[in-house]
Amino acid sequence: MKFSDQLEQRFSTMVTHYPTKRSVLVPMLLYIQDEVGALTDEAIHEIAQRTELSDLEVRNVISYYSMLRTRPVGKYNFQVCTNVSCLLRGADDIFEHCKKKLGIGNKESTPDGLFLLEEVECIGACSWAPALMMNYEFHENLTPAKIDELIDGLKKKEEQ
């Protein structure tokens, strides 16, 4: 399996950074996932070969990290923090609002596969709570109105 030139480049530089090949594993898996959409069997086998590990060992690692997935998720991945600092500032309401707005529950995707909604642990936005992460973007000091704006904007973008 070949990845994009950019990712191949990243891989070949990165392996030179560590004394063991498998050390590239965790970040590489994340990059592959970003590019492929999920850590497919094929991708797992490929990275296993390159790092001289068994597929099992790679799966063991993948299943440990909560950001790594073997199945594709939505194009827009809404990860709402409900941990304590956010909870104190109404994260439950924010999460409920997202559910209603998207019409889906926790860890569910919209039928068109565009949106995924997920409750997550602390994302490091405690002083700007409540917060969510959309793909790798932080959205902070959330209000229901801000969420509407965000989602509507994305929907509009998709329609074009």
């Binding site: 068994s54 597929d55 099992l56 060992e57 799966r59 063991n60 299943s63 440990y64």
Partner: peptide, 14 residues
């Protein structure tokens, strides 16, 4: 191997 973590940890075949 072990898959998942925490209480969902499970011994897994290859």
């Amino acid at each position: 191997g072990v898959q998942n973590r925490g209480t969902s940890s499970i011994i897994a075949p290859n």
